[in-house]
Protein backbone atom coordinates (compact mmCIF):
# COMPACT_ATOMS: atom_id res chain seq x y z
CA UNK A 1 0.00 0.00 0.00
CA UNK A 2 1.40 3.41 -0.97
CA UNK A 3 2.25 5.39 2.13
CA UNK A 4 3.75 8.50 0.57
CA UNK A 5 1.75 11.67 0.03
CA UNK A 6 0.75 11.98 -3.60
CA UNK A 7 2.98 14.57 -5.28
CA UNK A 8 0.22 16.46 -7.10
CA UNK A 9 1.51 19.23 -9.36
CA UNK A 10 0.65 22.70 -8.09
CA UNK A 11 1.02 24.35 -11.46
CA UNK A 12 -2.74 24.65 -12.11
CA UNK A 13 -4.04 28.01 -13.38
CA UNK A 14 -5.13 30.36 -10.60
CA UNK A 15 -8.68 30.47 -11.98
CA UNK A 16 -9.00 26.69 -11.73
CA UNK A 17 -7.68 26.70 -8.17
CA UNK A 18 -10.24 29.37 -7.25
CA UNK A 19 -13.02 27.46 -8.96
CA UNK A 20 -12.08 24.32 -7.03
CA UNK A 21 -11.98 26.22 -3.74
CA UNK A 22 -15.44 27.66 -4.53
CA UNK A 23 -16.81 24.16 -5.21
CA UNK A 24 -15.42 22.92 -1.89
CA UNK A 25 -16.89 25.90 -0.13
CA UNK A 26 -20.30 25.09 -1.61
CA UNK A 27 -20.13 21.41 -0.55
CA UNK A 28 -18.59 22.02 2.88
CA UNK A 29 -20.52 25.15 3.82
CA UNK A 30 -17.41 27.03 4.97
CA UNK A 31 -14.96 29.50 3.47
CA UNK A 32 -12.12 27.70 1.64
CA UNK A 33 -8.66 28.92 0.60
CA UNK A 34 -6.29 27.31 -1.93
CA UNK A 35 -4.05 25.63 0.63
CA UNK A 36 -6.72 24.61 3.16
CA UNK A 37 -6.78 20.97 4.24
CA UNK A 38 -9.90 18.99 3.32
CA UNK A 39 -10.16 17.21 6.67
CA UNK A 40 -9.36 20.29 8.76
CA UNK A 41 -12.33 21.93 7.00
CA UNK A 42 -14.61 19.12 8.21
CA UNK A 43 -14.56 17.14 4.95
CA UNK A 44 -15.60 13.49 5.00
CA UNK A 45 -16.31 10.72 2.51
CA UNK A 46 -19.87 11.86 1.82
CA UNK A 47 -18.71 15.37 0.86
CA UNK A 48 -15.82 13.76 -1.05
CA UNK A 49 -18.27 11.71 -3.13
CA UNK A 50 -20.18 14.91 -4.01
CA UNK A 51 -17.06 16.87 -4.93
CA UNK A 52 -15.64 14.11 -7.14
CA UNK A 53 -18.99 13.84 -8.94
CA UNK A 54 -19.14 17.59 -9.48
CA UNK A 55 -15.59 17.66 -10.84
CA UNK A 56 -16.56 14.96 -13.33
CA UNK A 57 -19.66 16.92 -14.40
CA UNK A 58 -17.82 20.24 -14.67
CA UNK A 59 -14.52 19.10 -16.18
CA UNK A 60 -15.04 15.59 -17.52
CA UNK A 61 -12.21 14.41 -15.31
CA UNK A 62 -12.72 11.30 -13.16
CA UNK A 63 -10.37 11.66 -10.18
CA UNK A 64 -9.28 8.50 -8.39
CA UNK A 65 -10.62 8.28 -4.85
CA UNK A 66 -7.15 7.79 -3.41
CA UNK A 67 -5.63 10.70 -5.33
CA UNK A 68 -8.44 12.97 -4.18
CA UNK A 69 -8.04 12.37 -0.43
CA UNK A 70 -4.25 12.18 -0.52
CA UNK A 71 -4.03 15.49 -2.40
CA UNK A 72 -6.02 17.21 0.33
CA UNK A 73 -6.08 20.88 -0.84
CA UNK A 74 -7.93 22.79 -3.60
CA UNK A 75 -4.57 23.78 -5.16
CA UNK A 76 -3.43 20.17 -5.48
CA UNK A 77 -6.85 18.98 -6.67
CA UNK A 78 -6.79 21.70 -9.35
CA UNK A 79 -3.40 20.32 -10.37
CA UNK A 80 -4.94 16.84 -10.72
CA UNK A 81 -7.80 18.25 -12.80
CA UNK A 82 -5.32 20.05 -15.05
CA UNK A 83 -3.37 16.82 -15.41
CA UNK A 84 -6.57 14.89 -16.20
CA UNK A 85 -7.64 17.39 -18.85
CA UNK A 86 -4.25 17.15 -20.51
CA UNK A 87 -4.83 13.43 -20.66
CA UNK A 88 -1.55 12.60 -18.92
Amino acid sequence: MAMEQQAAPSSAPVALVQETAALWSQCLGVEVKAEDDFFALGGNSLTGIKIIERIFEDHGVQLSVRDFYLAGTPARIAGLIEQGRAGT
Binding site: M1, G43, S45, I49, G72
Partner: peptide, 21 residues
Protein backbone atom coordinates in the same frame (compact mmCIF):
# COMPACT_ATOMS: atom_id res chain seq x y z
CA UNK B 1 0.97 0.24 9.14
CA UNK B 2 -0.59 -2.70 7.25
CA UNK B 3 -3.58 -0.60 6.23
CA UNK B 4 -2.66 3.07 6.52
CA UNK B 5 -2.75 5.20 3.36
CA UNK B 6 -1.53 8.76 3.96
CA UNK B 7 -3.01 10.25 7.13
CA UNK B 8 -5.48 8.46 9.42
CA UNK B 9 -8.27 10.76 8.18
CA UNK B 10 -7.39 10.05 4.54
CA UNK B 11 -7.31 6.29 5.20
CA UNK B 12 -10.78 6.39 6.74
CA UNK B 13 -12.23 8.60 4.01
CA UNK B 14 -10.78 6.51 1.17
CA UNK B 15 -12.13 3.31 2.70
CA UNK B 16 -15.61 4.75 3.45
CA UNK B 17 -15.82 6.28 0.02
CA UNK B 18 -14.78 3.14 -1.86
CA UNK B 19 -17.05 0.85 0.18
CA UNK B 20 -20.15 3.04 -0.13
CA UNK B 21 -19.46 3.50 -3.85
Amino acid sequence: PHFRTGSEAATLAIAHHELVT
